[in-house]
Design a binder for these strands. Sequence first.
DNA 1: CCAATTTGTTCGAAAAAACTGAATAGTTTT
DNA 2: AAAACTATTCAGTTTTTTCGAACAAATTGG
Lengths: 294, 294
Amino acid sequence: MKLTLDALEVLDAIDKKGSFAAAANALFRVPSTLTYTIQKLEEDLGFVIFRKEGRRSVLTPAGRVLLEEGRSLLLATQAMIDKAHQVDSGWEVRLNIALDTVWDTQQFLPILTEFQQLNTGVEINLLEEVMGGSLEALIEDRADIVLGGPAPNTPIQGLQFKEVIQSQWCFVTANHHPLTQTNLPLTNEMIAPYTSIVIKDSSRHSPIKSHRLMDKQKQIKVASMQQKISLIEAGIGVGFLPKHKIQNKLDEGTLVTLETTEPTAITPQYCSWKSNNKGKAARWFIDRILSEKI
Amino acid sequence: MKLTLDALEVLDAIDKKGSFAAAANALFRVPSTLTYTIQKLEEDLGFVIFRKEGRRSVLTPAGRVLLEEGRSLLLATQAMIDKAHQVDSGWEVRLNIALDTVWDTQQFLPILTEFQQLNTGVEINLLEEVMGGSLEALIEDRADIVLGGPAPNTPIQGLQFKEVIQSQWCFVTANHHPLTQTNLPLTNEMIAPYTSIVIKDSSRHSPIKSHRLMDKQKQIKVASMQQKISLIEAGIGVGFLPKHKIQNKLDEGTLVTLETTEPTAITPQYCSWKSNNKGKAARWFIDRILSEKI
DNA sequence: CCAATTTGTTCGAAAAAACTGAATAGTTTT
DNA sequence: AAAACTATTCAGTTTTTTCGAACAAATTGG
């Protein structure tokens, strides 16, 4: 490869500044140096880059190719160096965080803000996953950290997880729903006539398992917790929801919890990650989340 | 930019050959030179690229980024140099030739073969255009040369063209078509009951003008001359076709020409190009086509 | 287990490359 | 016609790169 990036920079400067003299000045060199550099480049590559026109030099077509493509080359080179520095700093180039839909995104934002203030240069991607989908994202390397969602029922090699929150599930309806007029506690038979809203598992491979499915009940399947809340609030259907995600709507009174004979589950929520993840950002988030009082 | 392509090549060689010593040998240098190159690179970039492990050196994560991204950088650089050489040679990097559908592609293949044997490195793209579409391709720089098709009805600035062939249009039907049983010459009224096959103009902007449209006739619109021939041969419809494109089918007898009262047109076919085109390949093709006896 | 081999590094000397500054010649501006 | 600006040439200097011998550490082989 008879070509140096330095020569490409010289070429760029000559074109940008409009003359050898001005470019030399900008590069803190002397004009004759640029003459030397360009002549050497021409000799190395075997074609003419500048031809004289009056008292100034203009690019040949081949020279123009070198200039223009060389510029993208220089940009790509700088990007590579930046990336290498980022990797060397120990901070990942990119960190994918999967938020299970049961987790409240709002709760996570302060942590994210705090991280951004560290100025690590790490690109953060937030993925939303549902139920089993979150763990799958971890296993398949689509995510580095999973926040919320269940622990694997069988321990998985190389995966670590820790409980971060107790999520209490309640049976919920809109404040204007017929069931609010019924005697409590509600039996399965009393609930059965009404449409129930169910979140569809986002995992791509796992067998489909709907959460707390009641057999004969009519169902509407939705993709996220937020959709489920909206539909229940609108009175379209009923279902179980984690209390912490709807506390504000319970306070406002648009949603109400109703006692059921079926005991309401308390499902623990986990933070999961790969044990072999040595990245600083991943470590920071895990430590930060586990230390959080929720 | 404190980085040289040479250093990236050294890095590549060390990884490929597995050791400083082997790489040095491959690069016709001495091992200590590579040590110097790498140490200088590390100093310039400000991070460690190799760390010792036993008696050999292994890449750090940042070093691996440099190696892998550096490789694509080297490839891109070489591609740029090749392209510059191609441009310098005066031969275009790419030449787009639009063949109007009236032109016989088969006739053009020997010329193309001849060109390929010149080993110019020019990438040839063949476009198929219909009627006015071919000239439009030229104006809009999608094509460098247009072969076949009409001359512009108003002379266009910067465009050159020359007649290359007299295309004689005949009224054609399948050999089993009812019209073959009729008294000749055919009048418009005799033709009108039968479906006519019409080529749809491929130009994107020009007002639509179907060729030799007969008013009350049923029509089927097709996209190319080849399709038109197929449909007529199948007896689906009838229409005017350039004699030179169907000579073999006339000889075989699957198609027949019928005399009409309407005089059959003799439309000249042109080769068109931009006058400011200085490329060697464009010039070669134009000269070659104009000198051809057809 | 010890000698031989292979590894990468250090260091002084030598070679090559890059850079400088003054002189020069051509072109445009004033 | 002089002044200002262009890029280039060239001899001399500085910097960078390369070499080769000597060395230390790690592995291999008999």
